[in-house]
Design a protein around this nucleic acid. Structure first.
Length: 308
DNA sequence: TTCTCGCGGGCCCTTACTTCA
DNA sequence: GATGAAGTAAGGGCCCGCGAG
């Protein structure tokens, strides 16, 4: 929620046609390859048809859904309970500032602490009151991680019941499961942002090349001594040259070039609008102006053109 | 009907610890 | 063994939606 809104507030609003399949594919590729060129300062928003919001912040959508679901199945509130428990074995202190999970039983705590102790069995002689002791953390076992990953594949958010069940299954506190999912979502989002960043960089490069090419083409045209009608067309082309090529479209029947205002932000809307305009008028496929064949928002995957 | 408040849950940023090269 | 980078569990703050009063 905050991420998408901040991107729209501060960042470049860039429209791209990018199917869910592509994004999934890219995400999978990123997970395999691992991209490490993340630029934290870059805010980006990808618009993808009518469901762009889902793709930009699908996690957010899941959040909303999950929240609603969670509310329906909410466990009895036991919030704002500050507990301060000390492990009996080695004097380790476990500070639970706020237990949201409705579980404060010693069984649950003992289970979690057993995991902590197993991972750091040699540190039981710690000073119990220090912050460092409180922050000593466990490393999840491979089995635990695998099960959490498997669960994350099915749903990126958990309702309280699922959380409880998973925690019981893993011998962890529900809070730990919750934190793991939170961190996992953050990692997923980070990876996706990295992928998006790379994608936008590539698009920027290709559009720059396209722009350069068109400028050169324009120079060539201007160099020619054109008859008046063609000169006028060249002048018009020069006028629209200042617009990004991806925002230009031309009605094949009326041969008017539409700028950004002619199309809408969403590609689906732009194509629908074009279809409406030609409905009943017949489309003889006048392809004199090649830019008209391009979608409103350029996608090098689905629309391989000179730009990409 | 509208407003206020508390609660629960999510995300972001950060810290601290672990692992590995 | 020391060290720095990367990974990650966890803490804290903030925001938002929802339900109750």
């Amino acid at each position: 929620m905050a991420s998408s809104s901040s991107a729209e507030d501060h960042g470049l609003l860039l429209g791209l046609t990018l199917s869910t399949a592509h994004r999934n594919h890219i995400t999978a590729a990123a997970n395999l390859n691992g991209v490490h060129s993340f630029e934290p300062s870059l805010s980006l928003t990808l618009l993808s048809g009518t469901d762009h919001a889902d793709q930009v912040s699908d996690a957010d959508a899941a959040v909303k859904k999950g929240t609603g679901c969670a509310r329906q199945e909410a466990s009895p509130p036991n919030s704002a309970v500050s507990s301060f428990s000390a492990a009996s074995g080695g004097g380790r202190m476990v500070i639970v500032k706020r237990e949201r999970d409705g579980l404060s039983s010693t069984d649950e705590m003992d289970t979690a602490e057993r995991v902590v102790s197993s991972s750091r069995a040699s540190d039981d002689d710690d000073d119990g009151g220090s912050t460092a002791a409180a922050r000593k953390k466990l490393r999840l076992t491979k089995d635990q991680s695998a099960l959490l990953e498997e669960s994350f594949k099915h749903h990126s958010t958990l309702n309280p019941k699922q959380k409880q069940a998973l925690a019981r299954q893993l011998n962890l506190r529900p809070r730990q499961v919750e934190v793991w999912f939170q961190n996992r979502r953050a990692r997923t989002k980070l990876k996706q942002t990295e992928v998006d960043c790379e994608f936008l960089k590539k698009c920027c490069e290709t559009l720059t090349d396209e722009n350069r090419r068109l400028h050169k083409e324009l120079q060539d045209l201007k160099a020619l001594k054109l008859p008046p009608p063609q000169a006028a067309a060249a002048a018009a082309a020069q006028f629209y040259m200042h617009m990004p090529a991806a925002t230009l479209s031309m009605c094949p029947s009326c041969e008017r070039v539409g700028g950004p205002a002619a199309g809408s932000v969403a590609p689906a809307a732009s194509t629908a609008g074009g279809a409406d305009h030609h409905r009943g008028g017949g489309s003889d496929g006048n392809s004199a102006f090649s830019i008209a064949q391009k979608p409103q928002f350029f996608n090098p995957f689905t629309n391989p053109s000179a730009a990409c």
